[in-house]
Simulated assay, not measured.
Amino acid sequence: MSEVLDLTRRLVSIPSHEDERAAGDAVATWLREETDATVRHDDSGVIARRGSGTDSLALVGHHDVVAPAEEQVACGGDEYVVEERDGRLHGRGTADMKGSLAAAMVAFRDADPATELVFASFVGEEQGGVGARKAIDAGFAPDYAVVGEGSTGYSAPGVTDVAVAHKGRRGSTLVATGESAHASEPEAGENAVYRACDAVDVVRDLDAPETTVLGRDLRGSVAVTEIEGGSAWNVVPERCTVTVDERTVPGERADLERTESVPGVEWVVDQDLPPMACDDAAFAETVLAAARDTQDDAPERVAKPHATDAGWLAAAGTTCVVCGAAEPGEAHTAAESVAIDVLERCEEIYRRVAESHPTGAA
């Protein structure tokens, strides 16, 4: 059994959907025992540093997971089920993202870094980047980062690509207010549902944001996903809310402020997960070259549809790409799994990148 596989099995077996401390302790303990790095474990996660140089390169992941399906929990509930079959490792967190995390840990230990090498495993990624945001607020600011979220299987099945951009998500609510009245005399009130419907018409007319990042086209979206209003069949409603899901792209947003041109409508942002765009073509090429050297197929620059902690890092000034073992459709499922050979490939990619200058110079 390879060391990356063994470490992945150990990390995956530790429950971390409600309480991430045990998984964080395991990551920190391994780093302290296996490396000479300076290791810090706090409420943002685990951060370790080794090497020196004018630039810093971070290998970034997270050790929290979404709640497992019943069949992914062992009897007694104190461990997750981890099974190996048909060249894949099955279990909650194998793809998202303890497999790539284990690959990054081994690469962090084994690399002869060309610059300061940083390892970070954050908490709360599944809750909107809680740990990454805390670390950034406390001064976490690597120059470059490879975030180990999934990038395998985008250009072709089994190929580990390099994502140079991903979408963000802005979730918001349109709050329409009016004045209640008896439904037999609707003109005596102001119907909040009608106002909400007028605002929905504004949303339907908005253009979806789009952009291009290092040759990859990225198109966002905006959609109404929920509507709720009214209190009784015979009462003109005084309040109605509309939920809007917007997938953002770097530098562009849908003009949702226009909904407030409707009388009685307020637009409230509930969540804003930032998109990511790699701002350094040379760094993207360095990672792509490492990916190319570790597989027979030809990896490509790709764009991901999902937000990751790379968005928070990029917004704070870190040059990022995403490169990891998970394939589309694996994360957050009852059948979650990851290809074992791809885990080992990712360890080699991370190590090769760490041993190259981040800008691609020798």
Rank of each mutant, 00 (worst) to 15 (best):
E266S: 12
R292T: 14
A289E: 14
V262F: 03
T259L: 03
D272Y: 09
G251C: 03
V287G: 05
A298K: 15
E266T: 12
V268T: 12
D279C: 11
P263D: 12
A289T: 14
A290R: 05
C278T: 05
T241A: 07
L256K: 03
V244W: 01
P274F: 09
G264D: 07
R247Y: 01
Q295C: 08
D272R: 08
E285A: 11
M276L: 07
L256N: 06
V287A: 05
T243A: 14
E257L: 13
D270E: 13
D279P: 09
V249P: 00
V262I: 06
F283S: 02
T243P: 12
T286C: 05
A281N: 08
V265S: 03
D293I: 13
A284H: 03
P299E: 11
R292M: 14
V269L: 07
E238L: 06
V262W: 02
A254G: 01
D272G: 10
T294R: 12
V244Q: 00
P263I: 10
L256V: 07
F283Q: 03
L273N: 15
S261C: 13
E260A: 05
E238Y: 06
T259C: 05
A298W: 15
D297P: 13
T243V: 13
V265P: 02
P263R: 11
A254K: 02
C278D: 02
R258W: 06
D297K: 15
A289W: 12
S261E: 15
E260M: 06
R258P: 03
A284V: 04
A277R: 00
L256S: 04
E285L: 10
A282G: 07
A254V: 03
E238N: 10
R239I: 08
P299V: 11
A289C: 12
R253E: 06
V242Q: 00
P250Y: 00
E257G: 14
P274H: 10
T243H: 14
P250M: 00
A289V: 12
L273Q: 14
P275G: 03
R253F: 05
A254C: 03
S261L: 13
W267G: 07
A281D: 10
P274Y: 09
E246Q: 09
F283I: 04
E285Y: 09
V244P: 00
T286P: 04
L288Y: 10
P250W: 01
L256A: 05
P250Q: 00
D245V: 04
P299A: 11
E257C: 13
A289H: 14
R239H: 10
V269P: 06
T294W: 12
A281F: 10
F283M: 03
V265L: 04
A298V: 15
L273K: 13
M276C: 08
L288H: 09
R239E: 10
A277M: 00
T243S: 15
D297L: 14
V249G: 01
L273I: 13
V269N: 05
V265M: 02
E246N: 06
V268S: 10
Q295G: 08
D270I: 11
E266L: 11
E238P: 05
E260I: 04
E252N: 01
T286R: 07
R239M: 09
T259D: 02
M276Q: 08
M276T: 05
C240T: 06
V262G: 01
G264W: 05
P274R: 09
D245A: 06
V268A: 11
R247A: 02
R258C: 03
R292L: 14
P299Y: 11
D272L: 10
E266D: 12
P250K: 03
E257V: 13
R247E: 01
T241L: 07
D297N: 15
A254Q: 00
